[in-house]
Design a protein around this nucleic acid. Structure first.
Lengths: 335, 335
DNA sequence: CAAAGTCATGGAATCCCTTCCATGTTCCGG
DNA sequence: CCGGAACATGGAAGGGATTCCATGACTTTG
């Protein structure tokens, strides 16, 4: 059984192909009665328009490309959810490109799909617009950044500065010396994010405001092992001091906070007393383990990014817009 | 500047479009001299054939759909690498569908992309062919399973039975009582994998062979928190016994093994002495933390899956083939 | 009631490719 | 040196959609 075409639908409904196309795209007015007939024919034949033909015909392909860095975190799963919800409502499909490293980026740049397939592009965390320009990608598609800020294209971002400030303001109210752990950010000139830098700036600003300061700062790359090692080093250092405890640590990612909690436990330290820990992300396990952390409206951010892109696809030609989202502090037992 | 079409190339090279197409697809013979001219024209104009037009013209779209469960693990990153390497060599593009849950599957089934876009389909871990049949997906594409076994389609799989056996045979040589931790497998009737079941069967068989038995078995779902809780429960139980230690634990995934190592450390137990731990996966951190585990040739398995699919696309019409890969044991300090 | 708009609609032209057929070339053996 | 097979090649015919133009059916208005 061949898959039905628009011709088949037109014939079945006793109308012309033009009319069917108009119904499909809600173009110019179609008489309600005719519209019904066509919709029924579509349902009867279980017809789905062929996206390739649509694209060829100069129209849309109803597909959006999404460039996501390492998908190994809850954050991106949630982000993807927000994006997918929005795009699905608008009947768009998603083509996902997990951007694990630079070689994969090269691959995608060379790939046909990225150049042709999509009507628009969503870039998460990394602003790669420059690379795209340099390579003179053939199709200049509307692009939206998510989880990153720039002033030359639409973006939907988390206000990590505020997040850092909230963490700092709260930390300042806690007794004991202050420590902080940051995330190694620059994997490569290309793959840079200011996310952690901003958390840091906000944190420091809030501390200064409160007249307090950090005793020492640590940096770890974003993986379990590095997190463990840094946690060990930090607590070793604290223990080596005369009046090391109590202390408060702001870990700029829950992954780091989790490692600290483990390490504190190993040393028999009481959380929320000897050591107070503040994370950032509110990973699914944070509630169960009682981690004080910053919760981010990630789905909403993704959803909004999609809306920005959809409005561009709908013909909007205004200056770049930026939608800002704010994390909020959730206090739990770890502090 | 418009993107060049095959017409432009033909004109630039002073040949007909048919000839250009023949060069692009290495179809029937083209005189070497002509071929050169055409290739030069293609290079000059920086021409890339439009995959949508190709598809419409009844040809291939040179795109493969890949259905992957939760991408949150190293395993799938490596698998994807293997797949991408193979497909890139063959100049195919990949469309990736991260299959997080049932609702996403529904989404994809309804999606145009899955039905139309690809020349072939790779399904990882979960055998969803039945669902596809039921829904009578319009396009019946060649399909290959990877990290799963079935006899009615091509597949490239890891021999987890052997993996379990190796673990069991090794565990049997170690002193002390034996424990095992398994992974909760059945998320849903649909999303089932026999991977852990097989590891278990192999493990038990090897123990029986050696005349030993497991003292107790535990089950955890595949996430950090569950892993921790199970580790705690297990070591509590062991500690409650008269002669609990030394003991040996086979954790059927490194995630679980990692949690056990942490927990053992908290309790001041010496790894490889009081507690011996055997994992499964050889995650990147396993070496650094000295975890004895089973290493799997994941990339190779992905690469092979791609080859199987490519041969089908190349016209091969034989019975289903299955390629088997074997894990091997890496002994480190944890045992 | 006729003229002039509106509204709906059918269908040809178009998008970029592949494929097939027909035409033109080259090469071989007799 | 010629006839026919094998080889090369140009170009028309699709393939499934969108879009635009022309046409016919209704309204509206003076």
């Amino acid at each position: 059984m061949k898959t039905p075409t628009i011709q088949d639908v037109a014939q079945h409904a006793g109308v012309g192909v033009g009319t069917v196309s108009r119904v499909l795209n809600n173009h110019t007015a179609v008489k309600p009665a005719t519209r019904e007939t066509v919709l029924k024919a579509i349902a009867d034949l279980n017809y789905t328009p062929n996206p390739h033909a649509r694209r060829i015909a100069g129209g849309k392909s109803y597909t959006i490309s999404v460039l996501l860095p390492v998908l190994t975190t809850e954050f991106y799963a949630r982000l993807l959810n927000g994006l997918e919800n929005a795009f699905q409502e608008a009947r768009y499909d998603l083509a996902i490109f997990p951007l694990l490293d630079r070689s994969r980026l090269e691959r995608y740049l060379a790939s046909h799909t990225l150049a042709y397939q999509a009507d628009g592009l969503v870039m998460a965390t990394y602003n790669l617009t420059k690379v795209f320009h340099e390579r003179r990608l053939q199709t200049r598609q509307p692009t939206v950044l998510v989880d990153a800020y720039t002033d030359d294209s639409d973006c939907s971002y988390m206000d990590n500065l505020t997040g850092g400030t909230l963490a700092g303001a709260y930390a300042a109210t806690l007794p004991g010396t202050l420590y902080a752990v940051w995330v190694e950010t620059e994997l490569d000139q290309l793959f840079t994010t200011r996310v952690f830098e901003e958390r840091r700036t906000g944190f420091h600003a809030a501390l200064e405001q409160a007249g307090r300061r950090v005793e020492a700062e640590y940096t770890a790359s974003f993986d379990t092992l590095a997190a463990r090692n840094t946690a060990t080093a930090l607590l070793d250092d604290v223990a080596a001091k005369a009046n090391g405890f109590p202390c408060t640590v702001f870990a700029s990612a829950d992954l780091l906070a989790g490692a600290l909690m483990d390490e504190a436990r190993v040393r028999g330290l009481t959380l929320g007393q000897d050591v107070r820990i503040i994370g950032f992300d509110d990973q699914p396990w944070a509630a169960a383990r009682g981690l004080t952390t910053l919760h981010q409206p990630v789905e909403a951010m993704g959803y909004e990014a999609a809306q920005l892109l959809l409005s561009r696809l709908g013909g909007y030609r205004g200056p770049p817009r930026a939608s800002r989202f704010e994390p909020h502090l959730i206090v739990r037992d770890s502090s």
